[in-house]
Nucleic acid binder design. Structure first.
Length: 701
DNA sequence: GTAGGGTTAG
């Protein structure tokens, strides 16, 4: 269609006489086409070069096309110049669309200049100014303009107010939306579907379910509920206010739900943790052949990647493409967390290529999620390359790179980036300091960590949250200052949670402090009685001290509580395919090769004097079996699979869902030496880079 | 025949 229209213009325009009729017939078509398609801007220069006579009827539409399409400010300026030289710039329609266009393109001074130079200010040009200023985050200017408008004798209408409402919502000021709605109501405006949709959207953002219900009542009374935009805004509001049941009731009552309503429902279910319901609803929509769009697909991909269903997210993305739904700039940040979680580097790379091809790499969300993905996939250098190439960054971007360095144990790089961040005048937030402090604690930079903890509170006015305390506890703990760490927990203003006590417990394991470990676990068993990790850690500490009766006691306690150990799970990507290995699982088709490889390595290690750490085995079985269980740990299986499936010398990347076990750590160090391989293992905390028999964590984790 | 306001995904 677009190409056809283009050809029509190319062929017919030069030969047509420029009669009033031709203009009248073609220009609106041209303008409508501009507004609809990204090829519009391609058409515009050719139309200009045809010496298209400036037309006060067509210019506004062309100017609006510039407002709607990205990167078209230069063309918009050109159209502005044309209106100036042809003496029609004072036309109220033209100046209104110019104001609108400049505000949409973030050229505020230009918008204000055009507005100031408009002698006869229509309601429309005032409305454009007010809406545009509000949407650009200049709420107080917008309200001032509204007052000026009135005192200059022009009365605002419903469109003026609605524009202000929408602008306030968009610029993150939903708190100002509801009072404005009240004011409109008391000034006697009959609210329409736009006003009600915006109000619902604000109520949702504020999680103000009382206001939301009131507006719902109003919409019901006035029959505005029947409007599609009101329906989807209602679903969105209930979803954001954690009223999933009410949301489902609204959806079921819809006579004919549209795509936006379906999308709002899917997003709402996902947001409320009802992942399976969202997947079921999505499957049902597909089975019905109901219309779905890229927003629905993106919601579902995000739903999976945010809820531990990473493989499902990758699969949905594949299905999305085979269903002919073109991914967009939002799809990438929905998908990439899943790639990062399971280290699906090839999928992540292809998303990177896609972003380059589509020109969406300049989107700060897209590039930030790429930085994060590369870091999580063990490619910190690639993360840095993407970071350096970004034209614009935000706090999330900086946090991604600092957190990436932290995860790789590269604390000095993390600190360097933090310094650079401040030089770029980017304000750090609470996440920045979590990344920075954990970098210091991973690398044992105790003094630096303490310094940043003070800097956070004194220079940046950020209150220490519980997670920051947890970082400091591991920092002190790593340095062996366990009593200080314990003291800090006692002095904390906030209530210490399981992260804080867990950090202390981990430090106790490293330094073999049984007494303090018992203090920490006492609290942990109260705070999270069903977390198997705490029992296992305590048992490991006892085991390392040979306190086998205590080990037995912990196991009994765990059984009594009905706590089951989380199955260990590792992922490795081999030639585009992500393989998942569960501890003790024999189902992988390559299992005989894996076992054979592990046996051969085990024999070699024993010959060199290595003894398997059978005391780390938690299960109550014979010694022989303990050794066998250790060999079945998922990270060993994944490494062995990598060894037998890739050429010698290739580096391997394994992701694990739990903390790496001591025996596996020792074994993989050994493997990295005898096999001459670099092996990266990411556990819940960080990357371990095994090379030539040692690990980048310095045996502290 | 032309201008100003619409809901859903990161």
């Amino acid at each position: 269609m677009n190409t056809a229209v283009q050809l029509l213009f190319r062929r017919s325009l030069p030969s047509l006489p420029w009669t009033r009729q031709v203009r009248a017939g073609l220009l609106p078509l041209f303008a409508a086409h501009l507004r609809l398609s990204s090829t519009g801007l391609f058409l515009l220069p050719s139309a200009l070069s045809l010496r298209l006579p400036p037309d006060p009827f067509a210019l506004p539409a062309a100017i609006n096309a510039c407002a709607a399409l990205p990167n078209s400010l230069p063309v918009g300026r050109q159209l502005h110049a044309i209106s100036l030289v042809s003496g029609i710039s004072a036309d109220p329609f033209i100046s209104t669309s110019l104001v609108h266009m400049y505000l949409k393109c973030a050229a505020l001074p230009d918008a204000h200049r055009v507005f100031d130079e408009t002698p006869q200010r229509s309601v429309a040009v005032w409305s454009a100014m007010i809406a545009g200023n509000a949407a650009r985050g200049r709420a107080s200017e917008a309200f001032q303009l509204l007052d000026q408008m009135r005192s200059s004798g022009t009365q605002p209408n419903l469109i003026t107010f609605n524009g202000l409402l929408v602008g306030l919502n968009r610029s993150g000021r939903p708190d100002k939306t509801l009072p404005l709605l009240q004011r409109m109501h008391s000034e006697g405006f009959e609210l329409d579907s736009v006003a009600v949709s915006s109000a619902l959207s604000a109520a949702g953002d504020l999680e103000d379910v009382t206001a939301g219900c009131q507006i719902h009542g109003y919409a019901n009374k006035t029959r505005l509920e029947a409007y599609a935009s009101v329906a989807s805004a209602l679903l969105d509001m209930y979803g954001k206010c954690s009223r999933a049941e009410e949301m489902l009731r609204v959806f079921d009552a819809l006579a004919s739900p549209d795509v936006a309503s379906r999308s709002a429902l899917l997003a709402g279910l996902s947001r409320n943790g009802r992942v399976d319901d969202a997947l079921a609803a999505f499957a049902e929509f597909r089975a019905q052949g109901a219309e779905l769009n890229v927003v629905c697909w993106n919601s579902m991909v995000a739903c999976c990647s945010q809820n531990g269903k990473d493989m499902e997210a990758l699969e949905l993305f594949r299905q999305m493409q085979s269903a002919g739904e073109e991914p967009n700039a939002v799809t990438i940040p929905c998908l990439l967390p899943a790639c990062g979680n399971v280290a699906a580097l090839m999928h992540g790379k292809s998303a990177h290529c896609f972003s380059l091809r589509q020109g969406i790499i300049v989107d700060v969300y897209v590039a930030s999620s790429l930085v994060d993905m590369y870091a999580k996939c063990g490619r910190i250098t690639d993360a840095r390359v993407v970071f350096d190439a970004m034209p614009k960054r935000n706090v999330v971007t900086w946090n991604a790179i600092i957190g990436g360095y932290a995860m790789h144990g590269l604390a000095n790089d993390a600190i360097e980036m933090f310094v650079s961040m401040k030089r770029h005048r980017q304000k750090p937030d609470t996440v920045t300091f979590i990344c920075l402090l954990s970098a210091c604690s991973q690398a044992g930079l105790t003094e630096e960590g303490e310094h940043f903890f003070d800097e956070m509170q004194n220079e940046h006015g950020i209150d220490a949250a519980v997670v920051h305390y947890a970082c400091i506890v591991s920092l002190l703990g790593r340095a062996g200052r366990l009593d200080e760490a314990h003291e800090l927990i006692r002095k904390m203003r906030n209530e210490a949670d399981s992260c804080v006590w867990g950090a202390l417990l981990s430090a106790c394991r490293v330094h073999g402090n049984v007494a303090l470990a018992e203090v920490a676990t006492k609290r942990l068993f109260e705070l999270e009685p069903t977390n198997a990790g705490n029992y296992v850690l305590l048992s490991n500490i006892y085991a390392s001290k040979g306190m086998l009766d205590e080990v037995e006691r912990v196991r009994e306690m765990m059984n009594a509580m009905g706590v089951k150990k989380n199955p260990g799970c590792s992922w490795i990507e081999i030639r585009n395919k992500v393989h998942m290995l569960l501890a003790g699982d024999k189902s992988h088709p390559q299992m005989s090769n894996i076992s054979e490889k592990l046996e051969r390595l085990g024999a070699e290690m024993k010959r060199l004097g290595y003894r398997p750490s059978i005391n780390l085995v938690f299960q109550d079985v014979e010694e022989q079996d303990k050794e066998y269980i250790l060999c079945g740990h998922s990270e060993k299986l994944a490494v062995a699979l990598g060894l037998v499936s890739t050429p010698a010398g290739t580096s391997l990347r394994v992701i694990k869902n739990l903390r790496i076990c001591g025996d596996c750590h020792a074994t993989i160090k050994f493997i990295s030496m005898v096999e001459g391989r670099e092996i990266l293992v990411r556990d819940t905390n960080r990357y371990h880079q095994f090379k030539g028999g040692s690990c980048s964590c310095g045996d502290y984790w």
